[in-house]
Structures are given as structure tokens and as C-alpha cells.
Write a protein that binds this DNA or RNA. Sequence first.
RNA 1: GCGGAUAUGGUGGAACUGGUAGACACAACAGACUUAAAAUCUGUUGGGCUUUAUGCCCGUGCCGGUUCGAUUCCGGCUAUCCGCACCA
Length: 972
Amino acid sequence: MDTDKKAPEYLEAAKIFEEKWRKNWEKENLFKTLSPTDKNFDAAKPKKVILDFFPYPSGYGLHIGHPLGYIATDVISRTYRMMGYNVLHSMGFDSFGLPAEQYAIQTNRHPRETTAENVANITRQLKFLGFDHDDDARFLSSEPEYYKWTQWLFLKLYDSYFDEGENWTDSLGNKVKGRAKPVADLRKKLKDGEWRQNVLGEIAPKDDKKFTKIVPEDKIEEVIDANRLAVLKNVDVNWCPGLGTVLANEEVTADGRSERGNFPVYRKPLKQWVLRITCYADRLYDDLKLIDWPRGVVEIQREWIGPSQGALVSFIAEDGSKLNVFTTRPDTLPGVTFVAVAPEHPLAVKYAGEAAKKMVSLARNRAYDDKSAHNGVFTGQYVMHPITGAKIPVWVGDYVLSGYGEGAVMGVPAHDQRDFEFAHRFDISIVPVIEPSQEWLKENAPEGASEDLNALYLRDAGSFKASYEGDGKIIAGLAGAEEFASLPNREALKKICEKLEALDKGSTKKTYRLRDWLFSRQRYWGEPFPVVYDVETGKTYALEEDQLPVLLPEVTDFRPVTSDDKDADPVTPLGRVTDWVKVKGIITENGKVKITDAPNAKDFVRDTNTMPNWAGSCWYYLRYFDPNNDNAFVSKEAEQYWAGKQNGAIDLYVGGAEHAVLHLLYARFWHKVFYDLGLVSTPEPFQKLFNQGMITADAFRDSRGFYVDVDLVEEKEENGKRVAYHKETGEKLSIDPGKMGKRYKNGISPEDAAMRHSTDALRCYMMFLGPLDSTSPWREAPIVGTERFLTSVWKLVHRDDLDTSDAPADAESERLVHKTIESVTKDIMALHLNTPISTMMILANALSQQKNPKKEHVEILIRLLSVYTPFMAEEIYDTVPSFTLPEGIKSVAFLPWPKWDEAKTAVTEMKIIVQINGKKRAEFMMPAGASDKEIEDEALKQDAVIRHIDGKEIRRLIHIPQKEWKVLGIVV
RNA sequence: GCGGAUAUGGUGGAACUGGUAGACACAACAGACUUAAAAUCUGUUGGGCUUUAUGCCCGUGCCGGUUCGAUUCCGGCUAUCCGCACCA
């Protein structure tokens, strides 16, 4: 080994100094974020809130894929901090819920224990990577200090109703339709008769003519309960006996299994807490315009909300009652030949009895992806067509979904493929309404049709291969619909709607695919509901605020009751804790309950369900603004400063694409409710969302097909191909590209990689892999490139010939340095975190080759680089004599970010590219100030140019100035 | 089926508003240093042609279009990935 080195080699040194700085930063709590309520807070500075998705504390710790996004937000937040912003970048843990609980069950330990352990482990891993998180803002969603506020916010939803008719303009100037308000307002309006009921029991202001019935005094609380944003409802739920709990629609996969654990899910009616997210469907849809999110996520949310403009149409039954259907194609109304209702529909239950019941159970157990023949049964009932007056049979069809629209459809077999198939199967007539195009007729005509296709279609549309779902003219001569004859169908649609409206047999209506959010889980590890039920009356009461938190009881048996039996009933683990469930309390003047043993106390029971794991993550980002506040979920001052005056409170939110609808939709919903109630000041939670890509990994298998631990694999290159061998047996292994995970034996711990190459090199390398949103496979070998880069920077800094004088630097290296600052700064702001490394490599290479590189230039490089390599930068400022931190600055993290001087980036000589007919033919240098004429003259002297013009006439000369070169286009 | 995204050398990728395609790296090859190897340094590296040049042709998934000029814009395909999928 070389002993006369002045400084140790970079890698060797990094092993020691990285550990030193880790300890030092933790001891100093260097990244403590001051809040507006703190003494030394500087409110004059601009703010940036940069967050990663709330991680759950997995028992397996972080693998190499996890830190990608975390490193990115760390680089960005460090850059903003150096630029003089107050930066909020923190990370807590979403520690309640299924993942944590399943892990506890598998390891046969209490979730409180495993959670604490996993959090400690991951926190250590995060610190290892040098992230600038604030340790004082590292809360867990399963701590009572935190979930007290989750319960408090749930009660806000419980205590609110949605006033659809309220149109208002918010403080940012956005026009908003509908608003959540306290139920106390509603109570007053109902008492005063300001709001009344219609025949369906819906409520609205009395100026609507259909709302005439004043709600009787003794029914008011019942009406209010039905209109709360959190309601207890009997609903068809996704029951997952394998997990022992019900699940939200968003947690069930397309093939009818649980997203967690992959157990089968069945439909079952149960009384559950439901959050009425559908009230916000329009705003959740429209407000996607207000924020800067990836197009894909926006589209997924739009599709999930799924608004659909159509009409409600009433068919009149023999007893005079109305059977409503929803349709998006009122223009096809004259072609209705049957009405089909879902097996769960009241009419089906009433008239099809056992047959419908059987269908319900068949449909419920039917595989989600089974699109084969549908079942149907005739109810024996008929209804009257609203326009033609024809007698229409009512069928029960299991292709009709009970949860969408009215749970009933009008059957137009000629123009809807599902109705077409149903009509064929049950021999129902098919009446065409719209003339198909000639091409369609040719394509779909029955085999061997010889007569005129138009005539054949009119006579027997059912003989064609499919229903016609396109546009066209209304066929003339339809009985009862003569007035629409020959109209284009889109026009007829409007006219038919008008007519229905006039007859009071229909109205235009918008429906949504979005369903209300099922909010109860029959699990232990979650937030208990802050409500109790009166044992005597069964009435629901919210607890008084000062009763919060409702602590999750300590139990030894926290296991859910799971089963393979789809008919098993849910049993809640909390239901077993009888002395927790049974309480005594008094009803206060607010109509809430206070738990007490006072002599006049009544008997109550607690709700034994818990909230789903999404509850805690619906508002955690707000808690970072004021993480240790005992008096409020967030203080007004903190919220207003950090959220700022924009549509979304969080400036940058980085995480994987897998939460496109779950967390990101739920959090938007809660945020909007809080916004309506004046608890937060922005209409949206997340201004800019960024989905980082995945790190995939290759797995290796031996000849028996067993996975081989990556540590035992040696990769080589043979004939340009990558091959893998077993390190011990020498056996050639097959390479499976794919996802990283424990079962593939290819999980690589980021600390191990950091130990091998230095944390700074790992951070750089992960950013250098490619654009932040691209998915790339993990390869460890190429990291030597970044390792070499850091080594050369380390050597550069330690050179003893650095020019520390005040002498001006030469213009060319000045230019390179300022160009580098500009390019690195702009790229980081644009979240292009791979290209700054290349740019800095170019600068480092150039400086290394100079004779006496200016120390000032080297220092600029180190400051820019410090956001990627905080350890090395800190060590340089601590140990290299010519690098010193200014008075009062504790760390490189607080050094000012270098600024570029536009004048210094200018070139003195321009490269001129000559293109002839668009092809580059010559290039030469000219002084930057050269005129177009001078450039042309010089260009025409070039041999290559003369050769390619070849005596032809010059028709056009085009000058295109670029930043550092000019293009002269010659057209001949 | 519907919706979204992606496609550039052996590999990861760069090219910012239509103007030098392949920056920066990895790998590979050659050379220097070394007894040797590692490390380090230097050079070559999209394909082809010839007259070896300040040369020519081809080349950014495929076909076509707009333009003096297209990786970039437009139309039509193909492949891969992701999401949704009885939504009336």
C-alpha cells in the first residue's frame, strides 16, 4: 500500500467519516424544522413542503428499491434549503392496519411490539442513508397522541352533512359547488321548516316544489343521521373470511380477491360505517384540474369516479308505482322490449322470490371475471312504456348491478350488446330504433343473407351478429314514437328527454361509478370508533371531544376470526373485550356522551370495529406542519404558513403509482371536507404529485428451479451476454428478470450496498440510473462509475496545487463553472436528477485536468454535489484546511446554493453549423458578434459547402441562432 | 374491449421551444505502468462503403405525411408495461 499519501483513499475514508457524520447529525438534530409557532422561525422565507408517501413499517425493512424516491426528495429538499427556503421534509409511519397486523400474526407477536421494532429498524436504515428528516416529526399513526386526532377528524365527518345546493367561491377564487356543513345547521333548518322532505324522504330547501313535507320533530334526528357524511348503513359489503374482515371496493382486485393476502372475497349485507365520498364525486373529478399530477393518475381517478350523463326513466307498474331505470341512451327508448332488474332489487325479491334469491347467491359466488351466459327469470309483471304506452315485461337479470344507478335497466336489445344477448337467450323481441351505417350492416349481416340488408334489418334485427351501438337516424314509423322519425339520434335524445320531463316520467341525471367508502374493519390493529350505542334505545352517540382518544384496549388475543366458510359471520376481536365494550355514561347537552360512573349514568356499548388503514394516512401530511401539538390536529398559523396560497398544500409529493386511487382519492376527500369546514385553507392536499419508478431485480434459479440467494451468485459476461454462476458449486444459473422480494431471494439491503461503495456513491448511483419515473433493474456493478467519480473529486479537493489566490480565473473555466451551476440548478428544479450528475462529472473531469484549478471552482462543485453526497461534503468542510464553513453555519446543508452569472456563461466564439437542404455539411468557428452576412460569406468559402451546392442556385438562406451555436440553412 | 405510458448503440441513458443524434457512464477492445494481477492513466468503440477524408451512404420500433430540416409535430400500425373491465 502507498504510504506517503496525504489523505486516505476516498472509499477507505468514507467508511469512517460517514459513520461519524451520521452520529453527529443525529446528536445535533440538524434538520429540526422550525414551525411558525417556534421562537426563531423566519416567516419571511418562502416555504417548500416535500413529502414521500407515508410508508408502513414493513417487517422486512427496506430493500434497495425503496430509497429511490427518498433519495430524490432528499436531494430536492437539500437544494431548496440551500437556496434559502424553509423546507419541510419528514417521514413518519403508517403503522396501523392490515400489513402491520398480518406481520404480527405471522410472527406470532403483538402488533405493538413488532411495529415498534420495525419502526426502529427502518428509522435506522433511513438515517444510514443520510436523509434530512426531522426526528421530532417522526410520529406513528398508531400512537394515541396521533390517533386521537384521527378520531377527532372522524367526528368532524360524523358531525357534518353535505349541502348540495350551496354554490360558493373560495378564498383562492375557485368556484365550488356543494359544501359540507355542521349538522347543527341542518337541525335548525329542519326544525324551522326551511328544509323539507319529498316523497322519497330526500331533503332540500323548501323552495324546491317537490320538497313539501315538513319533517316531524320526532323524526329529525333520524333524518340527520341518514344525512351525515359518516353514516351507519346496511350495505352489501366485500366480506373476506380469510382476513376476517370486510374490505373497501378499492381493496378488492378484479378477480374478486383481497389485495392484501389474496383471499377470496364475497358479497354480504352488513351494517357498517360508510363515508359518503360520492357527495364529492363532481368536485373530486373537476378539481383534478387544479393540481399538477401525472396524466396517468389523473385518468385513473377520473375513470374510478366515472361520471356518466344520462336520464332517469320511469316505467309505470300495474299498481301505479314507478319503476325507475337509469340510461345513457334515452334516444333508444322506443326500442325497449323488456326491463331488467338486479336480483337484489325489491321487485325481484317480491315477484321472483326463491328464483331471485337463488340468483343472488349464484351471482355472489360467481367468479368476478366470469362473463359467460347470464341468468334471468321473468317476474310475471308488466310495466307501461312511458312514451309508447306498450306493455313491457319485467325480468330479473343477474347482469344488472344492484349498486349502480337504479339497479334496473331498460332492455334495448337492438342497441345494447348485453341486452341483445339477454334477449336472444330468453327469446325476447328485438325492435330496432336507429338505422345502422351501410358498412355495419355488411359486416354484421347474417351468413348468406341475400335480400336487401336495410329491409332485413327492419324486419329481423335479431338475425344480425350484434347490436348496433353507433349513431344514425331514428327509423320512421315506430309505433308511439312517430314524432321522432328520421331525426339524428343525438337530437332525438334531447327531444325524448324533454318529453319525459313534461310527462313527469323522467329527468336527466348524472350517475357515478364511485361508491361510498366502507369504513369499518373487523380487525384489532386500528383506530377504535369514537362512538357508543345506547343499550336501551340502540341510538348512536358521538363521544365528547374531551373523551378522546378512545384507546385501543391492550389484549393478548388480537387475532381476527378468520374462516374458509364464506357464510361465516364477522366476529370482531374488540367484541371479545367485554369490559372495554360495556361502559357507563351520560348524554351531555351537546347530544354527545361522556363516559362516567356517576349514579345517573346509563349503559352504553362501544363500537367494536376499527377504522381501515387508510384513515391515518388521510391527514398525516397536515400533522407534519405541527407534529407535537396537543391542542389541535394542526395550529391555524402552522397550517396557513406551510400550505401557502395555492390549490394543494404539499408542494411536492413523491411515491409509487400503486396508490393512484386508494390513498390519493381518500385523502383528497377528507381534505375537501376539512376545507369546507374551514379547518384547512387549500381545496386540495397535494399540489404536485410525482410517481417514481420501480427498481426491479433479477432473480436466479438453479437447474431444479429453486431460487438462489443473490449473495451466492457471480455474474459474468460471455460473448456479450450476461450469465450467472453459483459462487460455491459453479453451476450455471438461469436469470429471471422481475420484481424484487424476499421470496425471490434477491432483496438487497441498501445499507449493505452503501457499506460496499459508500452511502454517497449509492445515493449518486441511484439518481444516475435514469429519469426518476422510469423503472430500471438493479445492477450493482455499474456503481463503480460513480465510485470513480467521487474518488476523483476527493483527489481534486486534496490536491496541494489548488489556486487560492484572488487572481481572476480564465474565461473558459469560468464559463464551464457557471454553465454547470445553471444546468444543475435548472435540472434539479425540474426533477431531472440524473443529468446533474453527468454535468458535474464533466466539470470534475475538466478541473482535474487543469494545472492549478481555482479552489473557488472546486468549492462550487462541492456545494452543488453536496445535495447528492452530504457525507463527503461535510467531511471536506471539516477536514480540508482551505474549505471552511462561514461563521454561524453548522453544516454544508445550510451553505448558500451557488448562483450563476448569465454574463459569464456567454461564449466568445460561436460554432456555425452549415446545413444544406437540412443536412449538416460543414462547421467552423466565428466570433460571437459576427453578422449574418459575415457568416454567409465565410460559409460559402468552405470546400464542403461549395462541393454540395455544386453550382446550383441558392434559393434561401436560414439563420437559426441557438444558445451556443448557430445553424445556417442553405436551400438549393 | 376501454384508458394511460413507453420504444434511441452491447447496456443504463442524453439531446430543454423542430436545428451538430448517441452527452455522461458501464461493458468491451488496445496501449502505458507492473515480475504479474488489481487499481490507475491514455486511446478506440452505432452500422456500412471507399478514394482513409474537413469523405459518402444508412441509422432514434414499423409505414406514411408536414418541413429547408423530424428522436421531437401529424396520421396509421406493431410490441411491451400499467390501470379498468358486465357501470346500462
